[in-house]
Write a protein that binds this DNA or RNA. Sequence first.
DNA 1: ATATTTGTTAACCATATGGTTAAACTTGTT
DNA 2: AACAAGTTTAACCATATGGTTAACAAATAT
Lengths: 201, 201
Amino acid sequence: MKKEETAEHLILDAAKDIFQSKGMDGARMQEIADKAGINKAMLHYYYRSKQLLFEAVFKNAFSLLAPQLNTILNDDSSIEDKVRKFTTDYTAFMMKHPYLPNFIINELNRNEDFILKLKENTGFPNLEKFKAQVNTEIKAGVLKPIDADQLFVNILALNIFPFLGKPLVKALTKKDELSYAAFVESRKTEVANFIIHSIKK
Amino acid sequence: MKKEETAEHLILDAAKDIFQSKGMDGARMQEIADKAGINKAMLHYYYRSKQLLFEAVFKNAFSLLAPQLNTILNDDSSIEDKVRKFTTDYTAFMMKHPYLPNFIINELNRNEDFILKLKENTGFPNLEKFKAQVNTEIKAGVLKPIDADQLFVNILALNIFPFLGKPLVKALTKKDELSYAAFVESRKTEVANFIIHSIKK
DNA sequence: ATATTTGTTAACCATATGGTTAAACTTGTT
DNA sequence: AACAAGTTTAACCATATGGTTAACAAATAT
């Protein structure tokens, strides 16, 4: 038996699917059990309560996202290169985990205190290096003046929003599933260009 | 008695609060009734079911948002002026309705078919004029070449994301409630400049 | 082999939840 | 005043839900 087929892992896996698509409030313990092919009592045996099972799933999801952010924050390439790399990588990553952004954003909105628990974790993204680098490049005349926090949020916004707002954007731009995928795919370069055009001298 | 104090309106008002902060799944009919100061049976008397009450709230919320979008889509000023006006107005609007974006985005993700009902409504935003105008200004040499859909999504993303991702962004940028409000306030001009810099020749 | 710990199940429980009902109250009409 | 229509309430209902229990099975240790 593979590690992934232990009851504990089967449960976490099923819980991930259900929680990420339906949220904490919409998820049902029975549905998770059914999806895992396992008796409902086992969920409590391994994770004690719905809340704790949810937290296990959430921390797992966030620990998938954090390294993506750290890419842009903590390597040594130029801001331009970072933006290009991040935009490509992040979009590719999101295409593989389409429920992730909405799940995280929404659950953080539902319970604002929850982010405090994440902050304590090592590996919680830290902006200091990125901000210092932006300011250095501005002084060096490579970039136009811009507040580093604002730039960071812009980068995040342009990359994440198409996944968060997919149903809305799809409807507004009158795209079907296929053309939306192509639209997002082309953003890998479009968004990077859009940002670079704006900030580069 | 004012119109706003009829039972029907008190219910809708309370339902708006509860649904927008807790979502469809997290909302409880009893809680809505309590907030409205009205017997629970009245909710069903006026709105038949939780689903229908929810839809009333949702359509209401969306009909508040749609005119904001139409501002940028259907007036006759230049793209640059539209971007500036939209960014200022939209941010001001969101500061007054902080739960709106997450509510709408999240519920549309929960039920993708729901947007179809909205599409039928008159007043559902239409991008054609905006797209034509972008292409005209590109041909006239006012704007650099850019796909109009991409530009539209960029504008939306930059404006909406700070409200959607507030808890996350607040934590990442280490801002408290007050400095986050200032951050968002300054985006009214920062975002417009960011966009204009990128697209203007 | 036997005892002990760990894993698993079906049945059960208390409570929460959306929804209904029938009676009472209010308002307007004749 | 009497009647009808609309409005409001408390009590009720069926079901769903997170969680528990006690018995049973499998693996592990003695």
